[in-house]
Design a protein around this nucleic acid. Structure first.
Length: 434
DNA sequence: TCTGGGGTCCTAGGACCC
DNA sequence: TCTGGGGTCCTAGGACCC
């Protein structure tokens, strides 16, 4: 029998901060995006204060202060480290784990026992993670991934489920769907919700009750798949070790943004370098590179500008030097030529607020292959990159880097409320009073 | 003044071919 | 004056996810 489990960490980023601040248990907590821009995670108490996902920090500052909300800058090093621990525990409970995001994973529970047995199995998983990592996890178990997602929402909402909600029989499914808003279903976003509402559909049960022909005639295959999944027909399978098809590194710049050409180039060099690192981590090569940069979307008082350009390389690569070089070439081709400006301080004339690099055309790295017309000694270059990776893994991120990546890092993030790297930095390790 | 950072999949339409 | 038909591939953009 096909059966899926979905393990979803409750308010993951907030819960991570609470692990090291137990006094914040039961108190409102929020975590901010990069540059302390907006609210991206809220504890239950913060949600009750009316704080919304994506609220700009400066707009809700008063509410946060008045209500004594604990505020943290996002600390992805910490969250990534706790996520790894959780995934490692989950992998012991299933032959196949499909890690869906930093705080969510699907477990293949097919043919592992009766549904009722799986229910107590799920409770055990949730209990172990809470005890050994300190993060509350909600688990949904059902014959399709979409139903498992719904189950996990119920497990989170009602303590009576003891961390695990099972949706197996038709009766349970009907009940669960009839109390579930259509817009909260996985795969039904804002636009679809509006269209479905116009058709008189309010709950997931309303949608599931429509005929297949009705759905087919109005929506695309993705929506049809969701409809099938709600009706217990599994269409989305477990996918272990998926290879990313595009890899992106991008940042917003603090305050007004960047106009200095040199700093922008330095930023793009660093984004490209980080992309190449991610690429090598999944043992892939890429053949196309896109660079983008744009001015603020929210300001009318300064001139706007959008840069977005791509380049395809003759031979797929994973080399840091090559990818950074290509990214800079693409960027420079979009900026005004240097001689049209004052030589002493070349400026881009625009205030760029965000920039990024995207690698695509990705394929698995193959054993060494030389092209007849290739002018680069790739074997040599690969050895160099491997050596740099090794040093950086040991000595710290970016210890060895290309000169174009610069040293002063003026585009670094604003993170006024950052917590310590309790689990990854020996200097930040938690002190326990005796 | 201050507004995140990743991804996936699908589709329509253009380029190109015979 | 009157200008085909059918197919594939690629790309950009939209909608969705966390």
């Amino acid at each position: 029998m096909t059966l899926f489990g979905l393990a979803d960490c409750n308010n993951f980023y907030c819960s991570c901060e609470r692990v090291f601040h137990p006094e914040l248990q039961g108190k409102p907590v929020v975590v901010l995006s990069n540059n302390d821009g907006c609210v991206i995670a809220r504890s239950e108490e913060s949600k009750r204060l009316g704080l919304k996902m994506g609220d700009p920090f400066y707009q809700v500052r008063d509410i946060l202060e008045t209500n004594n909300v604990a505020v943290f800058s996002s600390n992805y090093t910490l969250y990534g480290s706790l996520s790894k621990r959780i995934m490692s525990i989950l992998s012991r409970y299933t032959p196949r784990l499909d890690i869906y995001s930093i705080d969510e994973a699907f477990l293949d529970l097919s043919d592992m026992g009766s549904a009722e047995e799986m229910k107590s199995y799920g409770e055990r998983i949730s209990h172990e993670i809470k005890n050994s990592v300190g993060i509350p996890v909600s688990i949904g178990i059902a014959p399709t991934k979409t139903l498992a997602k719904i189950g996990s929402k119920y497990a989170k909402k009602y303590a009576g489920y003891k961390g695990c909600c099972l949706i197996d029989t038709d009766e349970r499914r009907q009940k669960a769907l009839s109390m579930f808003e259509i817009g909260d279903v996985w795969g039904i976003g804002r636009k679809l919700t509006k269209r479905l509402n116009n058709e008189g559909i309010v709950t997931a049960a309303d949608f599931a009750a429509k005929s297949e022909r009705w759905v087919k005639s109005r929506f695309n295959v993705t929506t049809l798949r969701t409809w099938k999944e709600l009706n217990g027909i599994s269409c989305i399978s477990v996918d272990e070790l998926p290879q990313k098809q595009s890899i992106c590194t991008s940042r917003s710049f603090a305050d007004q943004g960047i106009s200095d050409r040199g700093i922008l180039e330095e930023a793009v060099a660093n984004f490209a370098s980080r992309c190449a690192e991610k690429l090598r981590l999944q043992r892939s090569v890429c053949q196309s590179i896109t660079v983008f940069a744009h001015t603020s979307m929210f300001r009318d008082d300064v001139p706007r500008n959008f840069i977005n350009n791509s380049m395809t390389l003759p031979i797929a690569t994973q080399s840091q030097a090559e990818i950074v070089g290509a990214a800079l070439q693409v960027l420079r081709s979009c900026l005004p030529t240097a001689d049209s400006e004052r030589a002493d301080r070349p400026s881009t004339t625009y205030l760029y607020k965000k920039a990024g690099v995207i690698l695509w055309n990705i394929s698995p790295e193959r054993p060494f292959q030389q092209d007849f017309f290739d002018t680069i000694d790739r074997e040599k270059q690969k050895k160099l990159t491997e050596a740099i990776d090794q040093i950086n893994r040991k000595g710290g991120h970016n210890l060895v880097r290309l000169a174009v990546q610069g040293t002063d890092r003026r585009f670094e993030l604003k993170r006024e409320y950052i917590s310590h790297n309790y689990t990854t930095d020996i200097n930040d390790i938690l002190r326990v009073k005796v």
